[in-house]
Simulated assay, not measured.
Amino acid sequence: MYRRADLTQWSNAVDRHLNELVKSGYLEKLSVGLYYAPKKSIFGVVPPEDESLVRTFLKEDDFLITSPNAYNSLGVGTTQLYNVRVVYNHKRHGEFDLGGRKFFFHAKHRFPKKLTQEFLLVDLVNNIENLAEDKTEVLTKVLAKAKTMDARQLRRTVTSYGNTKAKSLFSSLITQKNNVAYAR
Score class of each variant (00 low, 15 high):
98 L>R: 07
44 G>Y: 13
161 Y>N: 08
18 L>Y: 00
111 F>M: 08
107 A>G: 07
119 F>M: 01
39 K>H: 06
142 V>C: 04
10 W>C: 00
115 L>R: 09
50 D>G: 05
49 E>K: 04
108 K>I: 09
170 F>Q: 06
179 N>L: 15
145 K>V: 05
1 M>R: 03
174 I>G: 09
31 S>R: 02
53 L>K: 02
15 D>M: 01
95 E>R: 14
99 G>K: 05
22 V>K: 08
109 H>G: 04
121 L>F: 00
6 D>G: 01
66 T>P: 14
119 F>A: 00
137 E>Y: 10
115 L>M: 15
106 H>G: 04
113 K>A: 14
23 K>D: 15
31 S>Q: 07
161 Y>V: 10
6 D>F: 00
139 L>T: 01
154 L>Q: 06
118 E>A: 03
162 G>W: 04
118 E>G: 01
113 K>P: 05
77 G>K: 10
31 S>L: 02
13 A>N: 00
98 L>D: 08
74 L>Q: 11
61 D>N: 13
129 E>G: 11
173 L>E: 12
151 A>T: 04
135 K>S: 11
5 A>P: 01
112 P>S: 01
26 Y>C: 04
53 L>M: 05
74 L>V: 08
167 K>Q: 13
166 A>G: 09
128 I>Q: 00
82 Y>N: 14
99 G>F: 08
43 F>Y: 13
13 A>I: 02
175 T>V: 12
155 R>L: 07
71 Y>L: 10
2 Y>S: 07
178 N>H: 10
44 G>V: 15
184 R>Y: 13
148 T>R: 09
143 L>C: 07
116 T>W: 03
164 T>N: 13
57 F>W: 13
156 R>S: 13
73 S>D: 14
115 L>D: 12
33 G>N: 04
103 F>N: 02
122 V>C: 03
177 K>P: 08
153 Q>S: 09
159 T>E: 13
24 S>F: 00
38 P>R: 06
69 N>D: 15
41 S>H: 11
172 S>V: 13
131 L>T: 03
120 L>P: 02
113 K>S: 10
